[in-house]
Nucleic acid binder design. Structure first.
Length: 871
RNA sequence: GGGGAUGUAGCUCAUCUGGCUAGAGCGCUUGACUGGCAGUCAAGAGGUAGUGGGUUCGACUCCCAUCUUCUCCA
């Protein structure tokens, strides 16, 4: 059975059980501070489990693209070494939000696997939670009894808390779970060792394929459990593993999910899969990683050096590294796999198709940049090897190479071992640990439990589109402390006019009015799991009162101008550059806006001008806002709204329309484009291959901008005595300046030439040494030049020049090199000793040295004294 | 967000702990040799050492601030 069919049958099966089938949510998360990527099928539905939102569909099923790079079985460095771990994978899941529970979940799982997929029930095992004393939980008898109806009791295994009690995190919803394992070994092997003993033992052919979680508790910060108001089902089945079982192969990488990629890698790199262990690992790594990276980029997450982008970069670099070392690829090649991937998965994940060109460009650029890093590292490592005595390279040096220059440590180890050398890994790990501790300490956040004041009013209403102030009640609050921000309070109201950071737009600021006119400032507003959280430095004394809260109007209106301008800019770019332009990122602040978009070339001056004109024309046309709230997604799309990838499945959306610009958007906007007043691009630059960034300003900021530039212009013009043509005035000045410079240079040379002649005439032969000590009225640099020039013409020279400037005294001493040796003279010593006369000190090299002091009157004596060195 | 590195001629980089009038290779200009090209030789142009402060007799070098780029960690 082809993987496409496997996926489809799953979805069809649950559709027949009255589930809504929803598309996969983005793999990259934007509004969750606790998580960078969707790492399990349940992530998009977190808010339902947390009780922060009521599900509109009580039964849902989907396949979800997930990314895992850390965790007990998902260390990035392990992926590829075995045949069943991945970074990016699909998780098939069915959900019940307060609807059905254990019985249906278990019955349907069995029906699908055995009746639909026709898996031999004698190869299946199931596990049941055995209970936990520390949590006061008993044996999950209910699940056991349900399984007993389908499977013989000797195939039911008891599982401990580690394997059979699922938790979302340290805090939050959790519950017992029941896993289904499948044994795909041959009959002989099964006869030898019972599959039962291999369950949960990391055996590549006895694997868990489906986990059914029965969510019924909430774990509090103090570790205790409380019963959830409603019970949910959350299941997750590894798609790739399921395909392995159904396609009757021994490895996920032998399924048609991966084989097209593996064939392509073989063809491109001219290597065969299945002949050499290192080559096989490399090919698996590349086949796995290219999926993760391509999906992430298609979801809008470009590789970068921080946050989620850094994780993506690391995954890609790991693939490049394996290709470099074991497949002998010294040029970019991974980008060539995008076509195959898109052909194979683009049907169900259309973002791969539409973003194919961008993904390809970005990968190629990243590959090139890392290959440069590797080149540089190879040179540095060579240097380290040369400077190493003995055969062990210090861990500190290797760490520096890794930390500062990005050279992979395993590559260092490999190269060293080829040269019969070793690496002090302990020291390396110590250094790495230090680095981690430092970073963690800087980012540490302590979060207290929520204090819930109003259980009944958990769904917070956003009223900020229509009003900037309201009378509200606090429904919950908690304290968070971090090194960076100190103590802050997170406050949630029953309703709020404050816009939370999202869609690129910054969160609102403002204040809470407490007793007798005092206020508590709200410094930021953010969204977390669908909850609007207000950050305040204090908490009202009596949080149970009703408060008036007010949004900072100035910031809000400026931000609104910038947000609307961003939409118009987006429209302008698509109109002027073409519809290949897609939003890749956006930041809307009160003082400026930033818009990243896909485009292959630098914008010309004319294009920038056209874009500005286009936006300003729409501002001039005074277009009113049309605000469509709570309309179904499909309705919005039918009306012509631009759908962005990265949108999450949701019940209803909001669409913002200004004339022909229509986008799905939750942000705040002006009522009429005329409020924006004016739009001005301040910069255009590249941020990645095929992605460009425009920064721009609007309204008040453009006034300031024009005022400032205008002011500078008039100041300059004034300085130039108000010429008719300032441009010409400046170029004239520059030319004049150049000719004058040359003239002065010539004059000075001439003067120095004369002076040099005079001085050479004054040189006296004393004791076989050409001696001259004189005070001159020249600057330090000229004296230096002069000294060297005289030195070039006169042999056996001992020259001492004194000079005085700004009340300070200076001595310069030049001694011909042959004299330095034959007469054992040292100009440095000379100036140091003579420096005493001018109450200063100095030094230099044996043949040229300078000294400075604060007593100019002593120069004469110093000059007189100098004679003694040659007598 | 935290740490490390980096910025010197058009390009790639030297200048070891402060002091050899800031150098090399490639590239560029001019000239010579060779039938032409490649090439060789000779001469030459090109640098506020990221920027702004400070310490010092003296700063590319040390200190502070700031920006660029790279990189690791979170």
């Amino acid at each position: 059975m082809k993987s496409q069919q496997v996926r489809q049958q799953f979805l069809d099966f649950f559709a027949s059980k009255k589930h809504s089938i929803v598309p996969s949510s983005p793999m990259v998360l934007k509004n969750d501070p606790t998580l960078m990527f969707t790492n399990a099928g349940m992530v998009p539905f977190k808010e339902y489990f947390l009780g922060q939102k009521n599900a509109t569909d009580k039964r849902v099923a989907d396949t979800q693209k997930c990314l895992r790079v850390s965790g007990k079985h998902n260390d990035l460095e392990e992926v590829g070494k075995d045949t069943y771990h991945h970074t990016m994978f699909e998780m098939l899941g069915n959900w019940s939000f307060g609807d059905y529970f254990k019985k249906e979940a278990i019955d349907w799982a069995w029906e699908l696997l055995v009746d639909v997929y026709k898996i031999d029930k004698d190869s299946l095992y199931v596990s049941v939670f055995e209970g936990s004393k520390e949590d006061g939980l008993g044996y999950d008898q209910e699940a056991y009894d349900l399984w007993k109806n389908h499977i013989s009791e000797d195939r039911i295994i008891n599982g401990n808390k580690k394997d059979n009690f699922w938790e979302m995190g340290a805090q939050g919803p959790c519950g017992p779970c029941s896993e289904i394992h499948v044994d795909i070994r041959s009959a002989e092997e099964k006869a030898k060792i019972s599959g039962k003993s291999l369950v949960n033992n990391d055996h590549p052919q006895v694997v868990e394929i489906w986990n059914l979680v029965f969510m019924e508790f909430n774990r509090k910060a103090d570790g205790s459990l409380e019963k959830l108001p409603a019970q949910h089902v959350d299941t997750g089945m590894g798609f790739e593993r399921l395909c392995m079982v159904l396609q009757n192969v021994q490895s996920n990488y032998d399924t048609d999910v991966f084989t097209p990629l593996i064939r392509e890698v073989e063809a491109i790199t001219n290597n065969d899969y299945g002949k050499n262990e290192d080559v096989d690992i490399s090919i698996r790594v590349i086949a796995d990683h290219v999926r993760a990276v391509a999906f992430a980029i298609a979801d809008g997450q470009l590789p970068s050096n921080t946050g989620a982008g850094y994780v993506i970069r690391r995954i890609l670099r790991r693939a490049i590294r394996y290709g470099f070392t074991f497949l002998n690829q010294k040029e970019p090649f991974i980008y060539k796999l995008v076509g195959t991937l898109s052909k194979q998965m683009g049907e169900y994940f259309p973002e791969l198709k539409t973003q194919k060109q961008l993904v390809t460009n970005v990968l190629k650029e990243e590959e090139n940049s890392f290959l440069r890093t590797l080149d540089q590292g190879l040179v540095l490592l060579d240097g380290i090897i040369k400077n190493t005595k003995g055969t062990e390279v210090s861990g500190k040096k290797a760490f520096e190479l890794f930390d500062t220059y990005g050279f992979p440590i395993d590559l260092t180890a490999l190269i060293l071992s080829e040269k019969g050398m070793t690496l002090n890994e302990n020291d390396f790990n110590t250094e790495l640990e230090k680095q981690k501790t430092r970073s963690r300490a800087a980012a540490a956040v302590e979060t207290d439990d929520w204090v819930v004041l109003d259980e009944d009013d958990l769904e917070e209403e956003f009223i900020g589109y229509d009003t900037l102030e309201a009378k509200v009640k606090i429904t919950r609050y908690r304290k968070v402390s971090s090194k960076k921000d100190g103590n802050l309070f997170q406050i949630v109201f029953n309703m709020t006019p404050f816009y939370p950071e999202g869609g690129g737009q910054v969160g609102d600021k403002g204040y809470i009015e407490v007793t007798n006119g005092n206020v508590i400032y709200i410094v930021d507003t953010k969204k977390e799991n669908n909850l609007i959280i207000h950050f305040a430095e204090n908490l009202p004394k009596d949080p149970s009162q009703t408060f008036r809260v007010v949004v900072d109007e100035k910031q809000r209106s400026r931000t609104a101008c910038n947000h609307t301008a961003t939409h118009l800019l987006h429209q302008a770019l698509r109109e002027i550059l073409g519809t290949h332009v897609e939003q890749k990122g956006s930041a809307v602040h009160s003082k400026n806006l930033r818009f990243d978009f896909s485009h292959y070339a630098k914008l010309t001056v004319d294009q920038l001008r056209d874009v500005e004109d286009f936006v300003n024309a729409r501002i001039d046309s005074k277009i009113p806002l049309e605000d469509f709230r709570n309309i179904p997604m499909q309705t919005a799309l039918d009306k012509g709204a631009m759908a962005l990838f990265g949108e999450k499945y949701g019940d209803t959306v909001r669409a913002i329309k200004f004339g022909n610009s229509m986008e799905l958007c939750g942000g705040t906007h002006v009522q009429n484009t005329s409020e924006i007043w004016h739009f001005k691009i301040t910069s255009e630059s590249a941020i990645a291959a095929g992605v460009r960034r425009i920064e721009a300003i609007t309204s008040d900021a453009t006034k300031d901008f024009y005022f400032e530039t205008n002011k500078v212009y008039f100041e300059l013009k004034d300085l130039l005595k108000n010429p008719v043509n300032p441009h010409k005035a400046i170029t004239d000045l520059q030319e004049e300046n150049n000719t004058l410079k040359k003239q002065i240079e010539n004059l000075l040379k001439e003067k120095a030439g004369n002076l040099k002649g005079d001085l050479i005439n004054e040189v006296k032969l004393i004791n076989g040494v050409n001696f001259l000590a004189k005070k001159l009225d020249l600057d330090q640099n000229s004296i230096k030049d002069l000294a060297f020039e005289i030195g070039n013409q006169v042999d056996n020279l001992f020259l001492l020049v004194g000079t005085e400037s700004e009340g300070k005294a200076f001595l310069t001493c030049f001694i011909s090199k042959n004299l330095v040796e034959s007469n054992d003279l040292d100009a440095g010593k000379v100036v140091r000793e003579l420096g005493k006369f001018i109450q200063g000190g100095g030094g230099g090299q044996p043949f040229f040295a300078t000294a400075g002091g604060k007593y100019p009157a002593g120069i004469a004596e110093a000059l007189k004294e100098s004679k003694k060195y040659i007598l």
